[in-house]
Simulated scan of single mutants.
Amino acid sequence: MASRSIHRIFVGNLPWTVSRRELKEYFSQFGYVASALVIFNKDTGMSRGYGFVNFAKREGYISATKQDGHVLEGSVIRVQPTNNS
């Protein structure tokens, strides 16, 4: 049975100015990003400071999670695996 794995990472401590586009652009250096999502507060419309990135291939996921010290728009962001891809 063939199934498609999702190679997803959690990204925390995002600056409030980061959108889905910036998140996808930043993580594209590690591999093809299938999708990126920034979580927003439904009441205020402001970023909640975290999001998720889905890589098309395991290699991008591994590269992103193995690198120390991610910095986006001047802020150190936290990157954590969400599965055992």
Rank of each mutant, 00 (worst) to 15 (best):
N83K: 00
I39E: 07
Q67E: 15
R48S: 12
S85A: 11
D68W: 04
A2K: 10
A34G: 06
N13C: 11
S35T: 12
D43E: 14
S63N: 15
R48F: 05
S85Y: 10
W16T: 12
K57G: 02
I39W: 00
P81M: 00
S47P: 12
E25T: 14
L23Q: 03
S35Y: 07
H70R: 11
Y32P: 00
N41T: 04
Q29E: 14
D68C: 05
Y50S: 07
N83C: 13
A56Y: 04
Y50I: 04
Y50T: 03
A34L: 09
M1A: 13
G69S: 14
L14P: 06
V53R: 04
A36R: 07
I6A: 10
S47E: 09
R48E: 12
A34E: 11
A64Q: 07
A56P: 00
T65Q: 10
A34S: 13
Y50M: 04
S3K: 05
T17P: 02
E25C: 10
V38Y: 06
V11P: 09
S28E: 15
V38E: 09
H70D: 10
E73A: 05
S63P: 05
S19R: 14
Q80C: 02
Q67L: 15
H70K: 03
E25H: 12
G45N: 09
Y61I: 06
R20Y: 00
S85Q: 06
R8Y: 01
F40C: 06
M46L: 13
L23S: 03
T82F: 01
S47M: 09
R4Q: 08
Q29Y: 10
N84D: 15
N54G: 00
G45A: 08
F52P: 01
Q80E: 15
Y26F: 15
R58S: 01
A36P: 12
L37K: 12
V38D: 09
F40M: 14
T82R: 04
L14W: 03
L37T: 12
A64S: 15
E22L: 11
R20Q: 10
S5W: 02
K57F: 09
V18I: 14
K42T: 11
T82L: 12
I6L: 10
R4N: 05
S3P: 00
A64K: 12
A2I: 11
T65F: 02
P15V: 01
Y61M: 02
S5N: 08
N41C: 13
G69I: 00
I39N: 00
A2V: 13
Q67G: 06
Y32I: 08
I39R: 11
F55G: 05
R21S: 12
S28I: 06
N41V: 04
Y26E: 13
I62P: 00
L14C: 05
R48V: 08
N54K: 01
S35V: 04
S63A: 14
M46T: 02
K66T: 07
R21W: 07
A34D: 10
Q67K: 15
N41F: 01
E73V: 05
V38M: 09
D43F: 09
S35C: 07
L23D: 05
R78K: 15
L72P: 07
